[in-house]
Lab assay of single mutants.
Amino acid sequence: MTYRVRIENADGEVVTIEISADELREKGLTLEELLPPNARIVEVEEVEP
């Protein structure tokens, strides 16, 4: 499974990243732990691999 994640950074700019569930598991991280300081998740969407 892959996630498309929209993130708002500290400057108010919204960027989109895609990350797979396998990648998260391998790194032992959650989506929140990948965020840079002062950023927030705006939207998470599951996409087909």
Rank of each mutant, 00 (worst) to 15 (best):
M1D: 02
M1P: 08
T2R: 15
T2I: 15
T2Y: 15
Y3S: 00
Y3A: 00
Y3F: 12
R4G: 00
R4I: 09
V5C: 06
V5P: 00
R6G: 02
R6L: 11
I7F: 15
I7W: 15
I7T: 03
I7G: 01
E8H: 05
E8L: 15
E8Y: 13
E8M: 15
E8D: 02
N9V: 12
N9P: 02
N9T: 15
A10Y: 10
A10H: 08
A10C: 11
D11G: 08
D11I: 07
D11S: 10
G12Y: 03
E13Y: 11
V14W: 07
V14M: 12
V14D: 04
V15W: 15
V15Q: 11
T16I: 14
T16C: 10
I17Q: 02
I17T: 02
I17A: 01
E18F: 15
I19Q: 00
S20P: 07
S20I: 04
S20G: 07
S20W: 05
A21R: 08
D22V: 11
D22S: 13
D22Y: 13
E23G: 04
L24F: 04
L24S: 01
L24R: 01
L24T: 01
L24A: 02
L24C: 04
L24M: 12
R25Y: 09
E26M: 13
K27P: 02
K27I: 05
G28P: 02
L29P: 02
L29T: 06
T30P: 06
E32M: 12
E32Y: 13
E33H: 07
E33I: 05
E33S: 10
L34E: 01
L35Q: 01
L35P: 01
L35F: 06
L35R: 02
P36L: 04
P36C: 03
P36K: 03
P37L: 10
N38K: 05
N38R: 06
N38M: 07
A39N: 05
A39H: 12
A39I: 11
R40I: 12
R40M: 07
R40S: 06
I41S: 02
I41L: 07
I41H: 03
V42H: 03
V42P: 01
V42Y: 04
V42S: 02
E43S: 15
V44M: 06
V44H: 02
V44N: 01
V44Y: 06
E45N: 08
E45Q: 12
E45P: 01
E46N: 06
E46M: 15
E46R: 13
V47P: 03
V47M: 10
V47T: 05
E48A: 14
E48L: 15
